[in-house]
Every structure is written in structure tokens, then in C-alpha cells.
């Protein structure tokens, strides 16, 4: 499988603290890869390096023959193809759901108002939010907000989605709707790199799982492989109730 995202020898330090150490990871087309591991192991940092919200210290991240970390890479252009979904949704509170989705379509992709609106409505519709176009984030439930955020990313036509604990901030009864949206994205062939503590979902939906500890990927494989590995730390982690 051709990798869409190919992370090579990636290091990241904050001051003296080395937070990522020699990370190597390939995410193939249409694959759903989960990053799991204890708190502080570097999962979010790794994800944020993939669209350069954090600047890695060294290494390479290849996406479709472009090294995202190269000095001459137009990162704003690449970011349209790398969707990101945050734990706290980060919707723009002063804009309606529709305007949230339209902003980058208009400003970055230069689409007309009408075209942007059409795309926004289609993506929101796909997320089951047809009745919510004109709602402000404060008028939506957490689950709905996260689905607006997903629509905002998908509208730009990304090749890969980075998702950092997309369900952690949600009330338990709202988690299902977001997981369902992720299943549908996967079924539609979207490539996804997901940080999550939803271990049941990871066991069911992940193609590959990378288990991180202290800034390194210490175990990597299919959920079945990790669960079968005697004495592995990932096994205890992945087998957990959640």
C-alpha cells in the first residue's frame, strides 16, 4: 500500500525536553492508524507535527512526494490536504456552522460564496446536521460541534485526517455519533491518523495501532497482533475497557 503519510526519523524537543525520539511511521492510503499510549507520551505532539502546528526538530514527513518539513514547502497549501480535528472542537464561536465550514473554502481555496455554501451544506448534511446550518456553536451539543469541525476539515478535500482525541470532551451519550461519523469516513476511503482512548473503537476500527511511550513508538501492528503479544504493554492498554 502506498503511504500517504511517511514519517521518517522524526525528533521534537521543547527546550531540553526531548518529546519525540526517532519516530518512523507510515500511514497507507485509506488506512486508519491509531496512536495510543499513556499521558505525556507525545501522541498529540506527533499529530501536531504532521501539519506543522509544532515544528519538529529534525526528520522528514513525506506526503505525496512533498516533504512537509522542507524549507520551501508551502505549508498553507499542504494544510488543505491535511485535515485536523481537535479534542475541544475549536469551532469559531462568532460564526454559524455553515460559516465555520465556508471560511477556508472562501479564503484559502478562493471559492465563490455560492459554491462555498453549497459545499458546506453538503458536508454538514453528510454529518447529519442538515437542520443546523444557521446555528452558532453555542447552540449545538458537543457531538454536533465536533461533527461541524469534521465537516470543516472534510470540505477542503483532505488526503488525510489527523484527529486528536475527537471524543474525549464529549458526554458519553454523544460519543457514538462522532464514532459513527469516523466509521463512515473510513468506509468512504479516508486516511486517518487518530489519537484516542476509545480502546473498544480502536480494536474494532483500527487497521494499525502505534503504541507510544516516552516519545517513542514502542509497539506497532494490527490490533489483533498487539493483543496477541504476550507481556506487551500495548496489550494491557488496548485490551482495556473503554
Amino acid at each position: 500500500m502506498r503511504p500517504i503519510l511517511d514519517i521518517q526519523a522524526l525528533y521534537k524537543s521543547f527546550g531540553d525536553a526531548e518529546v519525540l525520539k526517532n519516530i518512523n511511521l507510515k500511514v497507507g492510503e485509506g488506512e486508519m492508524v491509531f496512536l495510543i499510549g499513556p499521558s505525556g507520551s507525545g501522541k498529540s505532539t506527533l499529530l501536531r507535527c504532521c501539519n506543522r502546528l509544532e515544528e519538529p526538530t529534525s526528520g522528514a514527513i513525506w506526503m505525496d512526494n512533498t516533504n512537509l518539513l522542507a524549507g520551501d514547502t508551502d505549508i498553507n497549501r499542504m494544510r488543505q490536504r491535511i485535515g485536523m480535528v481537535f479534542q475541544g472542537f475549536n469551532l469559531y464561536p462568532h460564526m454559524t456552522a455553515e460559516q465555520n465550514v465556508m471560511l477556508a473554502l472562501r479564503r484559502v481555496q478562493g471559492k465563490s460564496e455560492a459554491e462555498a455554501r453549497e459545499i458546506a451544506r453538503r458536508e454538514l448534511d453528510r454529518m447529519g446536521l442538515a437542520e443546523r446550518f444557521g446555528h452558532y456553536p453555542s447552540q449545538l451539543s458537543g457531538g454536533q460541534q465536533q461533527r461541524v469541525a469534521i465537516a470543516r476539515s472534510l470540505a477542503l478535500g483532505p488526503r488525510v485526517m489527523l484527529m486528536d482525541e475527537p471524543t474525549s470532551a464529549l458526554d458519553p451519550e454523544l460519543v457514538g455519533g462522532v464514532l459513527e461519523a469516523m466509521r463512515e469516513m473510513k468506509a468512504a476511503g479516508m486516511t486517518m491518523l487518530v489519537v484516542s482512548h476509545e480502546m473498544r473503537f480502536a480494536r474494532e476500527a483500527a487497521d494499525r495501532v502505534a503504541f507510544m511511550q516516552a516519545g517513542e513508538i514502542v509497539e506497532y501492528g494490527t490490533p489483533a497482533e498487539l493483543l496477541a503479544r504476550e507481556g506487551g504493554r500495548a496489550r494491557a492498554f488496548l485490551g482495556g475497557e473503554h
Binding site: 502546528l53 497549501r77 488543505q80 481537535f86 475549536n90 471560511l103 479564503r107 470543516r152 476539515s153
Partner: peptide, 12 residues
């Protein structure tokens, strides 16, 4: 997170 969300969609 507001700036980050905007930058993540390609806005300068």
C-alpha cells in the same frame, strides 16, 4: 486553539 484551527485549514 482558534488560531490553530484556522491555520490548520490553510489560512495564513
Amino acid at each position: 486553539g482558534q488560531m490553530e484551527a484556522a491555520r490548520a485549514t490553510g489560512l495564513g
